[in-house]
Structures are given as C-alpha cells and as structure tokens.
C-alpha cells in the first residue's frame, strides 16, 4: 500500500455546507446498476480484479487458529490454479488484498501467512468493534496491541454518538488519535453508516474521517442491520472525490457487509469506475470486505472457464 494519507485541518465551514438529497441519490443508485454491465472475457477479468480487492474476513466469536489458517491459505490461493491457468492469469500473483480478523486472532493470522510464505497484510478491527462504546483509552490501547501483534492495517469504528450529536471537532480529535496510535499501520475508518441517521451525516462523517488522516473510509462493520448499500456508497464516493479535488489526497473506499455474489462485486467495481475513475480500481484504494463472496466469484470463474456449473466440492473451502 502506498504512503499514508496526510491529515489535514478540520474544515468546519466545508462540513456545514454539505447538501445531500436522499431521493435523488436513491434514483442514481438504482440507475447505476442498470446502466453498466460486463460480459464474457470482460466479466472474468473484472471478477479477478474483484478478488484482488477482497479483504477476506472472519469476525466471529468462535474463530480459532484452524479456521483462521484456512482463511489465510484461501487468501493466498483464492482461485483454483488450473482455472487461472486457463485464463492465462496464473503468473499474476492473484491473492486477496488482505485478511481481516479480530485483534485476538492477529497473531494466528500472521503466523499462518508466514507459513504459507506470503506477504498479504493482516488487518485487524479495533476500537471496541463493532459498537465502539468503550473508553477512548482502551480503544487506543487496542490499536497499539494489534499493531504490536503484526497487523499492518487497522479497521477502526467511529464513535457514532459524536456524529449523531454533531460533535465534529471531537470526532476529528478521536480519529486523529487513532491515526497516531496506528503508527506505520494503515487506518481504515468504519463509519457504520447504518447507524448515522441520514445521508448528510454520512457525507459529513466521511469528510471528518478523511481530514483526520484515514487511509480508507469503510461503510460498515457487517454487524449493523443495514450494511453496504449503493446510496451510502455514492455519498461516500462523492465525499472522497471532493476531498481529492480539494486536497489532492486519494483516500480509499471499502464497502463491507452483505456483498455475497459475483454480480454484486461487478456492480461495485463499475460504481467505483463511474464515480472515481480507473485509478481507484486497485487494492491500494478499493477493498471489499467479504467472507462468502470469494466462493461465488470462484464458481463464476469455473463456469466461465469450463462452461459448466461447479458443485460445492469442486472448489476448495476457506
């Protein structure tokens, strides 16, 4: 991943000017899915691109070393090698972008990846994930410990209370402290958009998170009732573009939660292409947080290559 985004000053006047028309954004979200599609070779290539942008994730109470190890190997070998060979993509080093686990499992993941001989980064959620309702001190400590354990990307959740009560300075300060605690690790800021109340709040929270130096902004934890949706994404992508135009900083985007099918992943790629442009279509600036998505993509690739639909046992599990 590239160098960190530079933090900038909190610009409250910009935040106060933000206007988002929900009805219009919903219409745009509907249209964007109907107006673009890719087929055949293009579909296969795009799906492989999607694979390289996946943060392969397991965030469960029953995670242990064995399933984290399986996940790490799947991250290293996301698509069956013979399928990649058929597409002449076997030498492109196709892996997922990262694996994403709870702080307590970071050591397991680092160990498993090392054994697999692979340099995929380990991302850890932190700061009282998923609700963020713990003391700031423990939240910061959580980040430091995860980094110590070898996580190079930290997915933090923001304090929703501060957004809902309009305390933008306090939010900026908190995220700035997260930034500092991360040290060399990358900071991905989860806005938990399902709990922010309105699209306008989502836009404002995106701006604050970027001003405070986030490398990525991320839609949701996957634990809220509403997760990554297109309207939310459109608003966040517009914020990213605005921020880039104003400061020259490219901030990444990560939708997470509820993205399960290959078709959806294509729609997400074309959404990024349309709203931000091709330069954002790299793992440095675009991630998809998902667990079951990968197996659907692999099935689609299998179908593209062989012309047949795969049985579950045809493809290795993660």
């Amino acid at each position: 991943m590239a160098a960190h985004c530079r933090a900038s000053e909190l610009d409250l006047s910009w935040i106060s000017r933000v206007q988002v028309n929900q009805a219009a954004v919903l219409r745009r979200a509907e249209q964007i899915q109907a107006r673009r599609s890719v087929k055949k070779e293009w579909q296969a290539a795009w799906l492989l691109k999607a694979v390289t942008c996946i943060d392969l994730t397991t965030l469960s109470g029953d995670d242990t070393f064995s399933n984290v190890q399986r996940l790490c190997y799947k991250a290293k070998y996301p698509i069956r090698q013979d399928l990649l060979k058929a597409l002449n993509m076997h030498d492109k080093g196709i892996t997922t972008a990262a694996v994403c686990v709870y702080p307590a499992r970071v050591c397991d993941a680092v160990k498993a990846l090392k054994a697999a001989g692979c340099s995929i980064p380990v991302a850890s959620v932190a700061t009282g994930f998923p609700a963020g309702q713990t003391h700031l001190k423990t939240r910061l400590e959580e980040i430091r410990l995860a980094v110590e354990d070898g996580a190079t990307e930290i997915d933090v959740v923001i304090n929703r209370t501060l957004v809902l009560t309009g305390q933008w300075e306090a939010l900026y300060d908190e995220i700035s402290q997260f930034r500092k605690a991360c040290g060399e690790a990358h900071l991905k800021t989860i806005l938990a958009t399902g709990e922010l109340g309105s699209l306008t709040n989502i836009y404002k929270a995106s701006l604050v998170a970027m001003m405070a130096g986030s490398d990525f902004i991320k839609t949701s934890t996957g634990k809220e009732t509403v997760n990554a949706t297109f309207p939310v994404a459109i608003v966040m992508l517009r914020a990213i573009r605005d921020f880039f135009w104003k400061t020259g900083n490219k901030v990444g985007f990560k939708p997470a939660g509820g993205i399960r099918t290959a078709k959806e992943s294509l729609a997400w790629l074309s959404l990024i292409k349309e709203e931000l442009g091709d330069e954002w279509l790299t793992p440095d600036l675009f991630r998809i947080g998902a667990s079951s998505l990968l197996s659907d993509i692999e099935r689609q690739i299998y179908h593209h290559v062989t012309g047949r639909y795969a049985a579950y046992h045809d493809l290795p599990m993660s």
């Binding site: 673009r36 890719v38 087929k39 055949k40 070779e41 293009w42 296969a44 290539a45 795009w46 492989l48 691109k49 597409l87 002449n88 993509m89 492109k92 790629l269 292409k273 091709d278 279509l281």
Partner: peptide, 11 residues
C-alpha cells in the same frame, strides 16, 4: 482477460 485485467475497460 489478461489485458482487460489491466485496462479494466468495458466490453
């Protein structure tokens, strides 16, 4: 597919 993987163009 190999080329498209780099260009990410529409078909």
């Amino acid at each position: 597919a190999r080329e498209i993987f780099t260009t990410l163009e529409y078909g």
